[in-house]
């Protein structure tokens, strides 16, 4: 069977939507991830796919404030992907939000591209707030941004950061956790992509990070545990964060239970799909399963 990769040209608005509409967007993002990774012949499928619902709600339901045509607007909310290897889902989200042409998704990881294997600030790709790829650094970047907004600019924009769960094994992540409540960063929302998978296996086996809720609570967070694929859960958690931002001094931590590779049956919940692209047959099957 021959396989010609084309990206649908659709972009989506950033306004409240029904779950049905949101799930259409999430499927579009998944399809982009599969296609761009197939073309790249390398990259991280599993985690990219499992963030589809969360990225959809963040960027397409009116939650994050941004202007894709004037993206450096000072009043924008900030989104930091600390798990830089999950760049494919970020690139797809940004393209579908109009930050750059959807076509460009086909250049992922190729020589000369702005879509580097891990996001690079040096590419000037619209929507990228920081380079990332050395795990555990993005969350501290987010804290710096939150401190800047809260104490120096005295503005109330949101700062959202996604880390992996394996990523929590890095020690500076817990220095960051300590700083979040020390500095009363109620404007910080830390989302943990809790798929329990990393490269060598289950997170609990490679280095046990659990119990997570108790850890983050002890570090002073308001912790919300959700199903990271359930739109209502995600919306509810983000509203709680918005309330925290207004009414409290507490940083928010959303522990999102996810399944690596979600949406593509043969990848689901398999850590082996942490860092591989689909081959041709797998891409055909995945695209069939994701058929819009």
């Amino acid at each position: 069977m021959s396989l010609v990769i084309k990206f649908t040209p659709d972009t989506f608005t950033n306004s409240p939507k029904t779950n049905h509409e949101l799930s259409h967007i999430a499927r579009t993002l998944r399809t982009d991830v599969v296609k761009s990774l197939y073309l790249a012949k390398s990259g991280h499928s599993g985690g990219s796919l499992d963030l589809s619902e969360i990225m959809t709600v963040l960027y397409f339901n009116g939650f994050l404030k941004y202007n894709s045509k004037n993206w450096k607007d000072k009043s924008r909310d900030r989104f930091v992907l600390s798990a830089g290897h999950l760049a494919p889902i970020l690139y797809s989200t940004l393209a579908r939000a109009g930050f750059f042409e959807v076509e460009e998704l086909g250049t992922l990881r190729k020589l000369g591209t702005r879509l580097q294997g891990h996001p690079g600030l040096d590419t000037n790709l619209p929507g990228i707030e920081t380079s990332a790829g050395s795990l555990g650094q993005g969350i501290s970047i987010a804290i710096g941004m939150a401190m800047s907004h809260k104490y120096l600019d005295k503005t109330s924009q949101k700062v959202i950061c996604i880390t992996g769960d394996g990523e929590l094994e890095e020690g500076t992540v817990w220095e960051a956790a300590m700083a979040s409540s020390n500095f009363k960063l109620s404007n910080l929302c830390w989302i943990v992509d809790n798929n329990d998978c990393q490269i060598d296996g289950r997170v609990s086996e490679v280095m046990n990070i659990y119990p997570l809720r108790e850890k983050f609570e002890a570090f002073g967070f308001d912790v919300i545990e959700i199903d990271g694929h359930n739109f209502d859960d995600i919306k509810m958690a983000l509203s709680k964060y918005e309330a925290n931002l207004k009414n409290t001094d507490k940083p928010t931590c959303i522990i999102a239970k996810t399944y690596m590779g979600k949406g593509v049956s043969f990848m689901e919940n398999k850590y082996e799909w942490h860092g591989n692209p689909p081959n041709k047959d797998q891409t055909i099957q995945a695209l069939n399963e994701l058929e819009l």
Partner: peptide, 8 residues
Amino acid sequence: VGPDGATH
């Protein structure tokens, strides 16, 4: 190390 890019 190739396509992973500068960070790696």
